[in-house]
Amino acid sequence: MRKEIRIAGFGGQGIILAGIVIGKAAALYDGLKAVQTQSYGPEARGGASRTELVLSDEEIDFPKVQSPDILVAMSHEALIKYLDDLKDGGTLIVDPDLILEDEIRPFVEEHNINLYRAPATRTAQEEIGLAIVANIVMIGAITAITKVITEDAARKAVADSVPPGTEKKNFSAFEAGLKMV
């Protein structure tokens, strides 16, 4: 199995870290092969931000994402920019408070996209009291919806990746994301 994942939003949402956490979970704790890449350039500051993952149970020959099986959009701009690349029948996860769903409904129906709404930013603010952990809430949602990584591996990768002293808030954020589905 080869799964291609693209997570996109704007700079400052922790998009890249989300990609690293999922990559770590897969490669270090789930025994999968994983390659993580990211958009890199002036647009990463303030503008659009993007990370991509290839996960596989075999060696990953081609390290880049061609047409994702899973698209996670944390901004409307990113959603519109990348929706066309999503595979027919693919999985689309959006933060519903940051996108305009009406605009994508025809595409979703036409291409049999499985659409999931994960209000990660609102949940981070209201349940954790910290908007900055929205990316970790989203990792929880991605884990629960797609099952590309196990919950246990994801927890270990979150623990590895967040600044010391912030583990508790980040774990709560992850659990809140899991429960969203």
């Binding site: 690293i20 990559g23 490669a27 270090l28 092969k33 994983a34 390659v35 993580q36 890449t37 990211q38 890199y40 990953i60 390290p63 880049k64």
Partner: peptide, 10 residues
């Protein structure tokens, strides 16, 4: 190169 330098793997 830029690809192998910037990508993450185990």
């Amino acid at each position: 190169d830029e690809i192998v330098g910037h990508m993450r793997e185990k």
